[in-house]
Write a protein that binds this DNA or RNA. Structure first.
Lengths: 340, 340
DNA sequence: TTGTATGCGTTATCAA
DNA sequence: TTGATAACGCATACAA
């Protein structure tokens, strides 16, 4: 029971293989009668075009790859929830633009690096990931060349002259903290990751600092807490803040997860949100709506990001020059902060 | 600047193209010297094997497709969060088993149906989706044949003799409700979807009924609330329950999202959870950990599900017979319910 | 409008 | 151990 080929169709339809190909591709150069016979035969034989042969022959259908580099530092061992709507949109948008999409999740035991270096399943690659990209770039010597079409999300520090797409982290943080200040908060704690190569967090911290500075507020190092990326880390950070006894009336968490963890600890200790302490997150994950009070946040526009990523790779494939794109963020105010 | 082929490599390395192929595929039938020269040339030319040609010639590397049929009935306009860890695991596991993976999200404007009928980008297909599958099956006449390798997640009612993989919804619901009863709850409301073709919900409802029956508890139709799939629907359902004035001391929500929405409404009206009302969800989404109190739930084992799905398609591709698999669920008790 | 013939870049089968 | 050479299944230039 072998798969039927276009020759089998041709035989059954009583035409040449070339005509089968034309009919299947909707060419105008085929009579209505022949087309119908071909289609009937295709139906009968359950014929499907072999995608590999088609792509090999006509370099028309492009394939993109999405490589997700996860640090798996989060609670549930799964993919970073931030990437979910982004990947989803990449899939949709790439489909609209006529690309086929291959997805791969990095995994320790899985040397996709070697695979992707030696073989080329895609004309262009989109890298998503919060993990230190530099390490990978070095392993991927094959990808450090101008003839490879790849685009990186959000890790501009390590992009080494390559195109990247990234949110305006500094501006988003600035807006968020400025909002808290306008609502009357004066002692705003910052929760963020200072170790590692998470450049986004540095930018967010810079936005925090600029907002304080522009408002003429003093900077207090005791309000700056190093915090890893899980819920528990966020809770621990809030706990540490409370334990030190330093006064604060707001928390700006550099990710929603940290913020939600912090809220959990505040609530546990009987501190009212936003009554005593306002909380602001970053990312605008969907979970912001499920916690109570609902968490205010800085939305990263994953829809636009996804489209820019795809468009950028597409442009690279076509040989165009592309530059890094900064995507604006948007403040989303919910119950977790209000005017004092 | 054309892509180098294996012939270019051969020329540079001073060997035949056949030797290049052997070297690249790690054949033992190639001298160490030749292998080194080939590898060096590959490095210099940034050579990558053309995956299409390779797959065309050696029908070795199989490709699987994941088709996500979403009803987009959720708040977020994005993919159902339940599928996220599942897709993630499918990607990982399929990769481990040597499959390439193509993913497509159903979208109204996007007639992937036609595409997937006429072309065959994959040897096997995994359907995920809560949408009425029957409609699609009809559009996919090409897929209603024994020579197509596809597996469906969770929609056994419409699988029409095809293989499907599904959680033990009835048993999971039974366990959950039985747990509530053992904790002393007597008036347990059921929130679920009764319209449409969501067969899972019927099964969960059956489990609920059986648990009541086995415990000798009376069945009260006023405790059964029709509820759609969003947070707001869950909240509305809880509100309706409260407004009717019917007494209840627990809610079994047939999805976590409904349950979280219900919790929001209960909290808003000052009803203590689990003090006055215990709440139990279904799915064990990650968000169960972020809400307060943390939501108890029935875990669907998405990891196992993903692996069974991949294994099933793989088996079909190899020509084996496969039967439907029921995957056990697991009760996860958190703060939202406790003994009265 | 149709058919013939060629090539896409591999892997696999021979014979050397 | 290597090198010619033949497929793989399709799309397309060219001839009819």
């Amino acid at each position: 029971m072998k798969r039927p080929t276009s020759f089998d169709l041709a035989a059954m339809a009583g035409v040449s293989q070339a005509t089968v190909s034309r009919a299947l591709n909707g060419s105008a150069l085929v009579s209505a009668d022949a087309r119908r016979r071909v289609m009937d035969a295709a139906q009968k034989l359950h014929y499907k075009v072999d995608s590999n042969a088609r792509k090999l022959r006509s370099n028309k259908i492009q394939t993109l790859a999405v490589l997700v580099l996860e640090d798996m530092e989060n609670d549930h061992g799964a993919i970073n929830p931030f990437f979910v709507p982004m990947i989803s949109e990449i899939i949709k948008y790439a489909g609209q633009k006529g690309f086929e999409l291959v997805i791969s999740l990095q995994q320790e035991s899985n040397n996709w690096g070697a695979d992707y270096c030696i073989s080329r399943p895609a004309e262009g690659i989109i890298f998503l990931g919060s993990k230190d990209f530099e390490t990978y770039a070095e392993n991927f010597q094959g990808y450090n060349h101008a003839d490879d079409n790849w685009v990186v999300w959000g890790l501009n520090r390590t992009a080494r002259g390559k195109v990247c797409v990234v949110s305006d982290n500094e501006g988003g943080a600035f807006d968020a903290v400025t909002h808290l200040i306008r609502q009357g908060r004066r002692r705003i704690a910052y929760l963020g990751k200072f170790s590692g190569d998470h450049w986004e967090f540095i930018e967010r911290y810079q936005g925090y600092c600029r907002a304080l500075h522009d408002a003429g507020l003093p900077f207090d190092d005791a309000l700056k807490v190093d915090c890893a990326l899980t819920l528990d880390d966020g809770a621990a950070a809030a706990g540490k803040l409370l334990d030190t006894g330093v006064a604060f009336d707001a928390i700006f968490a550099s990710t929603d997860i940290m913020g939600i963890g912090a809220m959990r600890e505040l609530t546990r200790r009987g501190i009212a949100i936003p009554g005593q302490v306002a909380v602001m997150g970053f990312d605008d994950l969907w979970v912001c709506n499920t916690v109570s009070p609902r968490l205010s946040s800085v939305r990263q526009d994953t829809t636009t990001a996804a489209r820019v990523l795809v468009d950028s790779v597409a442009a690279l494939i076509e040989g165009h020059e592309i530059t890094t794109t900064r995507i604006p963020t948007q403040l989303v105010i919910r119950d977790s902060c209000r005017t004092v």
